[in-house]
Amino acid sequence: MRTSVRTSLRYLLLAAIAVVVLFPIYITVVNALLPVQLIGHRPPVLFPSHPLWSDFSQAWSGGSLSQYLRTSAIVSISITVGSVATSVLAAYAFAFLEFPLKRVLFGLCLATLMVPAEVTIIPNYRTIQVFGWFDTYPALIVPFVASGLGIFLFRQSFRQLPRELRDAAVLDGYGHWRFLLRVVLPLNRPMLSAFAIFAWLGAWNQYLWPLLVTNTDARRTVQVGLRQLEGLSVSAPNVVFAGTILAALPIFAVLFLFQRQLVRGLTAGAVKG
């Protein structure tokens, strides 16, 4: 009897936390489904009796949301693919090849971890201007196609491979490229996907840099687009709510699909195992 009371209390606690965590998202969804005159109604409407889906279509087609989302998708996927590729290559060299200045170069890779992008925006902004990249995809992508963290994580992961696997491949006539493609990459899939999802999340959520280097709707990412959207909060608040939900949906979908990789990526280095 006593244990069942405790279990009930436990569920009550969990439910209370869930309500607090979810409420801001929930109320945004509710408002997105209300007709505009019911937003800000007193007492507030907490459940939409006649959900209205038109706000979503309005937010989708009326604003530039679909454009923002497309830009964000292109940028974040390019950054993910690019940083995984450059990191895999560099990490392979650091893990399997001997070359002069190897330690120095690896030290420099680690050093980049200490230089957050926020610190270097001023010269980088000028560089983008000099390259003629202002308000283009390269401006949003190229500065982030290399990752010191990726190189570090992949090198650690690659070095876990037994040396005898490499020896066997050498005897079997497999050069570095084929060894990389046929053996190293397949065997390091967990680490690759964890880093990829982590890199994607970071790229998707960027705010300051896209704000600096874009000035037209065609190149604004969805995060910066939300800033434009926020400006509508007085004239069309329902569109703001619907737009916010639409902006958040892709990331919900991706993270739901890749939960395991995400957790592994986020906790890499923080918790052993």
Binding site: P162, E164, L165, D167, A168, L171, V183, P186, L187
Partner: peptide, 11 residues
Amino acid sequence: MVFQSYALYPH
């Protein structure tokens, strides 16, 4: 060559 750890490709 045959290695002590067999060096089989796990995948």
